[in-house]
Design a protein around this nucleic acid. Structure first.
Lengths: 354, 354
DNA sequence: GTGAAAGCGCTAACAG
DNA sequence: CTGTTAGCGCTTTCAC
């Protein structure tokens, strides 16, 4: 394979425009101190020759790499991909992240990093050394991994912590988990429910707790008791099954359940069916995430849509801003979530408080 | 933001090991002509310092970039991401491609390119100039786009054409569409069907034709007529609906249907239901792709599993081999597909030839 | 405002 | 077998 060199380099452009390399560089980087006339001349040559700067060379000379690294947990991501159950977290990240990157002249690179490994540090530093990204996007559970977070802080590289509220280091961006849980709870209360069960996610995700908080507070504000209405899962179908059973297999079962993700909602649906409970007539159900499966269940699920694409898009913006402003934004950014109405919610069969 | 430089460079390693840069470079690249003793000493320093070569610098010096670019059609990919219907083509590509890349010391970068745009050339050359990838993976319909293919050929950069059988330029890798269709047809014939309908994909995908061929030939070999049993869709639900209706809305309707993708199979399922036909009792159904939705339909669909991950993995291997051997493999690589049995196939209700 | 020089981290080509 | 030299394409000084 013949050695491939850059087809058209900054030199060619400079020669074509009859200016120095430096001037071309200034035009590329939109720097001041270039006369408009000169700028136009250079730009014309760039267009004519189809010149695109080499990221490698740009990075080499100590400037930016125009690369943003998005990192997911290796094991969970691969497990999701292999299960082929439609979890589209990665796709939504790419949707939001790649498009925003493209818009701003950057590129997004997606990588997997093992959280539990002894060599997180090795893996992460390796990726950074190899790629030299201008910024990094962390997702749960990495976002709150102290080892990862402090490592990145030392590297002095802008990074966003999606699903984190801690603003000690890095840029926290959260999807309003608490607000979403409140929204779901209120939605059910407005329709007459007062015994609303909640299936929580695993405690190693901070957002699990926030969602529980939102539900618990909303219930308290409405004056409803939550005793015996909380069950914990780990986001898996099996755990959702167990949780749903513990909630539904009793006399004073809830008339509605909020599940912290779609898999557990699906499990709840199946448990309800096995118990002879019709959804939504006998049991209303709201799920979190709004992954593809909500379209295919019977009935389709009313769900809180996790704005993953919007959040990743925002993360990219924040990183690039941080890079330019030489300073991190001060406060936590919260991306609002919405509830998507489908057919799994109805008023309770035996209205309460009667 | 302070200028970030490579924390530990080849210089540090060389100094630490007390050798020249070149020797370190040789060790990194696993080149011959290094005494084992020396190699160990250098490797020890590399490990001790946690050195990872900068791909930017590696690329700069005219060698490899250790980057492989996977390219998908922009419009269709974004549409799939936004629809959130569980199409996991991209995920499967990443699964197969990223893992194989990691294994071989490469990195995969995923990009979107617009097929229909007047500036395909611009976009593609831009990505190549910016990233300087060592190889490119094309997917349908790009794989057979003459403009793209000849462009890449001129660039003298190894590229795989997934879903293509043309071996004029580039490396063709196909998923055995014809064989899969044969397999599905035989599967149904063995269970007693002889009126087997086929819903084809759009003609701008070559694989649409291959699938039809596999079905038609298998039917012919078995001595069954295919007149009136072929309908064409475009992979969309709506087109599948129309195709299914044209097939089922007649007296001599087929007892089984093979749909060229899952969305059209789903549509067929719905049309059957609306016509009062039970699947699989009154109508057997086999779909192509095996995307997540096949788990969630009622009944779950028996499907041809498109080995996207395995194919992408193979594509990575072929590109790296082409790079090392300075030569392209001579023949078309075919990755076999398998049929996943679920609950949408049964013997025909009124056995044939009775 | 613009240009010339130096160097980023690495490898190719050549010496020894 | 190992070391030295000269760039890769670009940006950063620093002159003018």
């Amino acid at each position: 394979m013949a050695r491939r060199r850059q087809a058209v380099t900054i030199k060619h452009v400079a020669a074509d425009a009859g200016v120095s390399l430096q001037t071309v560089s200034r035009v590329i980087n939109n720097e001041p101190n270039v006369r408009p006339e000169m700028k136009n001349r250079v730009q014309a040559s760039i267009d004519k020759l189809g010149y695109v700067p080499s990221i490698a060379a740009q990075r080499m000379s100590g400037s930016r790499s125009y690369l943003i690294l998005a990192i997911n947990d290796r094991d969970r991501t691969i497990a999701d991909w292999q299960a082929r159950l439609g979890t589209d977290w990665v796709d939504q990240m790419l949707l939001g992240g790649m498009l925003k990157c493209a818009e701003l002249g950057y590129r997004m690179i997606f990588e997997l990093v093992d959280t539990h490994s002894d060599h997180v540090e090795r893996e992460l530093l390796g990726a950074i050394a190899a790629l030299q990204p201008d910024g990094i996007i962390l997702t749960p559970p990495h976002s709150d991994n102290p080892q990862i977070v402090s490592l990145l802080d030392q590297q002095n590289i802008p990074f966003v912590r999606i699903g984190s509220k801690q603003s000690d280091v890095g840029i926290p961006v959260s999807m309003d988990d608490e607000g979403s849980a409140r929204q779901a709870s209120r939605y059910l209360i407005e329709r007459g429910h007062h015994r609303i069960g909640f299936i929580a996610g695993p405690s190693d995700y901070d957002l699990s707790g926030w969602r529980v908080d939102g539900w618990r507070e909303t219930m308290a504000e409405a004056g409803f008791d939550t005793t015996g209405l909380l069950a914990a899962g780990d986001f898996s179908y099996a755990s959702g099954e167990a949780a749903a059973r513990s909630l539904l297999d009793r006399a004073d079962r809830p008339s509605a359940i909020i599940a912290s993700n779609d898999q557990m909602a699906l499990a709840t649906l199946d448990v309800a069916r096995s118990l002879g409970l019709a959804v939504p007539h006998d049991l209303s159900l709201i799920s979190f995430d709004n992954t593809p499966l909500v379209h295919f269940t019977q009935p389709p699920l009313t769900a809180i849509d996790q704005p993953i694409a919007a959040t990743t898009s925002k993360a990219v913006e924040l990183i690039i801003a941080a890079q330019n402003d030489h300073e991190l934004p001060p406060t936590l950014t919260i991306v609002p979530a919405t509830i998507i109405e489908r057919d799994s919610v109805a008023p309770p069969a035996a209205p309460a408080g009667g």
